[in-house]
Design a protein around this nucleic acid. Structure first.
Length: 207
DNA sequence: ATCCCGAGGG
DNA sequence: CCCTCTGGAT
C-alpha cells in the first residue's frame, strides 16, 4: 500500500537542527511546506539558533514571515518559543510531549512531528489536514476531531510505524489524495477507499 | 466558535 | 473567483 509507494518518506521542510525543525513546523501551520522553505533561508541565516532568535526584533521577524500568512502570531510564537527554550530548557529542545506543548505556537500536532522526526520518539501520531482527510476517505476513522482520529490511527498502526506512517499519509495526501480534485482514477487504494470522488469512479471499481 | 493571514492552484 | 495550505490561541 502506502509503504511500497513511499518506502522511506522524508519531511519536506528544510532544517539543519532539531531547533530549526521545531521552528519550521510552527511556521507550517495552515501553510504549505514550499511557502515555509521560501522564508527559512533568510530566517535561519539571521537567527539560526535559540539564543539568536530569542533576541530577534519582532518587526524584523514579521518582515521575514510576511509572505506565509499569520505572520504576526507566528513571529510572536517562534520568538516566544526560543525564549522559553533558553529560560526553561537550558537552550535545548525538550523531548517530552508535556514540555513541548507549553511552548507558544506548539500543540499536540507540532509536538508529535518534532518528537518523531528529530528524536525518533513515537509518542503519538500527528494529525494535520492531510492525515485527517486521507484517513477519513480511507475509512480509517469516522471522526473529524484530531484527538479521536489520532486514537483510531494508533489502534490500527504498529508503534514502530507511527512516524513514517504519518509522513506517508502526508505525502499521499499532498500529491495524490488531494483536497480539491483527488486522482481517484489512478489510485492504488481505490478498492479499499470508501469515498472515491465520483459515482463513475466507484462503479468502475466495483464493476 | 472565531480569529489569525498571504500566496498559489484550479 | 474560491479553496487550500502538515494549526494554534483566544
Amino acid at each position: 500500500m502506502l509503504t511500497e509507494r513511499y518506502p522511506s518518506p522524508r519531511c519536506e521542510l528544510d532544517y539543519a537542527s532539531p531547533f530549526q525543525l521545531l521552528i519550521a513546523v510552527i511556521l507550517s501551520a495552515q501553510t504549505s511546506d514550499k511557502a515555509v522553505n521560501k522564508v527559512t533561508p533568510e530566517l535561519f541565516g539571521r537567527f539560526p539558533d535559540a539564543p539568536s532568535l530569542a533576541k530577534a526584533p519582532l518587526l524584523e521577524l514579521r518582515k521575514i514571515l510576511r509572505s506565509i500568512g499569520f505572520f504576526r502570531a507566528k513571529a510572536r510564537s517562534i520568538r516566544g518559543t526560543a525564549q522559553a527554550i533558553m529560560k526553561r530548557y537550558g537552550g535545548e529542545v525538550p523531548r517530552e510531549m508535556a514540555a513541548l506543548i507549553t511552548l507558544p505556537g506548539v500543540a499536540r500536532k507540532t509536538a508529535n512531528v518534532v518528537l518523531g522526526e528529530a528524536f525518533e520518539i513515537a509518542e503519538g501520531i500527528a494529525v494535520d489536514t492531510h492525515v485527517a482527510r486521507v484517513s477519513k476517505r480511507l475509512g480509517l476513522t469516522k471522526s473529524t476531531s484530531p484527538p479521536e482520529i489520532e486514537r483510531d490511527l494508533m489502534q490500527v498502526t504498529p508503534r514502530t510505524d507511527w512516524g513514517k506512517g504519518h509522513l506517508r499519509m502526508v505525502l499521499f495526501g499532498r500529491y495524490h489524495c488531494t483536497a480539491r480534485s483527488p486522482k481517484c482514477t489512478e489510485c492504488p487504494l481505490l478498492d479499499v477507499c470508501i469515498a472515491p470522488e465520483s459515482a463513475a469512479v466507484r462503479d468502475a471499481c466495483h464493476e
